[in-house]
Amino acid sequence: MQPTEYNPSSNYQSLIEVTDDTRAAFYRKTYGHVALATLLFIIVETILLRIDPLVELMLSLTQGWKWLLVLGAFMFATNYAEKLAHTTHDKTKQYLALLLFVVAEAIIFVPLLYIAIFYMEGDYFSVINQAAIMTLALFTGLSAVVLITKKDFSFLRSFLAIGFVIAVGAIVAGMIFGFNLGLVFSAGMIVLAAGTILYQTSQLVHKYSTDQYVGASLGLFASLMLLFWYILSIFMSND
């Protein structure tokens, strides 16, 4: 997920210009929407994993160039949702963008969670739960650093953009030449996801205006899910 820079509308106040109470209300709305998006993801994912034809299709697409097509479709849906959420002040369109992104995340997660549930030996739910707990702990800790210190992490944008380009190149090369990217790559992606959380939370504090809590929640949810994907991947590889 590429870091998104948001330019607030002149029709609304920037968060750095409002009272503490207004800012706190914005934060509550934003993280409330992140929680709702996460709950919706769990519900949609549970439904999708019960649709055998969809599961079989997604598993069949995980090899070689077919997965590249899936990733391309996912990136297109992601970019469209983020653009829509950050460039419109129509709440209906913002919520549609968030819904689109949650569904896209649920679909892309089908193969990984199916393998975690049905193919891993041992207590697979424990593995998923441990990955989820660690993800939430890291997300909460990184968000708290920015919200408490008010530090501006906008300088990370260029580094994150370069990092994601390199990551996509590595994924494409791995699929074309058939090599496993391994734990080092997953660890690197966790670092990228952590940097994205810092960046997105910084945007929340310094760049967003008071009407953009839905768009802000989409960016944070995207970073949360990216972090969860690679933490879960590492837990599964160590099981």
Rank of each mutant, 00 (worst) to 15 (best):
P3C: 02
P8S: 06
I16R: 13
V18C: 02
D20W: 04
A24L: 06
Y27T: 02
Y31K: 01
H33G: 02
L39W: 03
F41H: 07
I51H: 06
P53Q: 01
L54F: 10
V55S: 06
M58E: 06
T62K: 15
K66N: 12
V70Y: 08
G72M: 13
F74V: 09
M75E: 14
T78R: 06
T78V: 00
Y80S: 13
A81D: 12
A85F: 04
K93V: 04
Q94H: 03
A97S: 12
L98C: 15
L100S: 15
A104I: 06
E105W: 11
I107K: 01
I107S: 04
E121M: 10
G122T: 00
G122S: 04
Y124S: 12
A132S: 02
M134H: 10
L136N: 07
G141A: 14
A144V: 10
V146K: 02
I148Q: 00
I148C: 02
K151R: 09
A161R: 09
A170T: 12
F185N: 12
S186D: 13
G188V: 07
M189I: 08
V191H: 04
L192Y: 12
A193P: 05
T196Y: 02
L198W: 13
Q200L: 00
V205W: 05
H206K: 11
T210E: 03
D211K: 13
S217K: 05
L218D: 01
F228C: 04
S233F: 11
N238D: 00
